[in-house]
Amino acid sequence: MYALNYVKVKSLAEAAKMLASNPEAKLMAGGMTLVPTLKQRLAQPSHLVDIGALPELRGITAKAGTLTIGAATKHHDVATSAVAKKAIPSLAYLAGLIGDPQVRNLGTIGGSVANNDPAADYPAAVLGLGATVVTNKREIAADDYFQGMFTTALEEGEIITRIVFPVPRRAAYAKFAHPASGYAMAGVFVAQTSDGTRVAVTGAGPGVFRWKAAETALGKNPKAAAIEGVALDAGEMNEDIHATREYRANLVRVMAKRAIAQLR
C-alpha cells in the first residue's frame, strides 16, 4: 500500500469538505474492497475519508411501503435485521450471501453500491427492486444510477447516504457463486410489483442490467416457464476462464427460473 492519510470524519459535511479540498481523496466505509485494492497498489489516494462510523448513515427502517437502509449499514446487520427480513426477506437473504462472515461484519451497502462491481450482489437488488439511491446532493433512480462496470451516476464528491427500497409484492434472488471467490457468476434478482415484474442480472455481463425481454414475458404474474424461450443475447455476456458467454447466458436463465420459483 502506498502511504496515505487516514481521516475519520465526524459529520457528512466534514466528509464533503475533505473530498472537495483533496481531489485525490477517497471515501471509505467498511474498506472490504478498498483496502485489498490499496494493498495491490491499484489505487493511490492521498486521503482515506472514513464515513463508516457516522450514525446518520446507519440503520434500517420500514414505513409506508418502503425499506430504508443507511449507506454505512453493514451486510451482517441487513442479513440479520428483523425489520429487513419482514419487509423484503429476499434482500436480507442476499446480504447474507455476500463475501463471508468476516466481510459481512465490515462491508457496507453504500460501499458496495458506490463501487458497483459487475459481480457484486447488492446492485442486483437495488436495480431489481427499482430502489432510489439517496446522496448528500440528490436522489437517483436505480435505472439511472448504474452505468456499467464500476461506473455510476455519482459525481465527484457525492456521498451516498441511504438506499430506499420500495417493498415489492414478492421478490427473490438466486445466485450461482464462483466457488473460490464467492462472487456471482450469475445472480438474478426478480421482483414482482403491482406494475409488473423486474429482472436484474449481476455477474454475467459487464455490469448489472435488466433483462427486459424476460420482464415483458413475465408480466404481472411471473411463472418460470414464461422465460423458457425468451431472448438473451450471449454476445452481451462476459467470457473468461470460468465460463463462456453461452454458458453464462444459460446460467442467467437458470438463475432467473430459480428466483421465480422462490418468489416470496
Partner: peptide, 18 residues
Amino acid sequence: TVHVNGRAVKSCSVLAVQ
C-alpha cells in the same frame, strides 16, 4: 481473523487506525 468489538474480521484487510 480477530474480533473487533466482538465481531470477527480479517485483520489483514483492516487498517489499525480504522
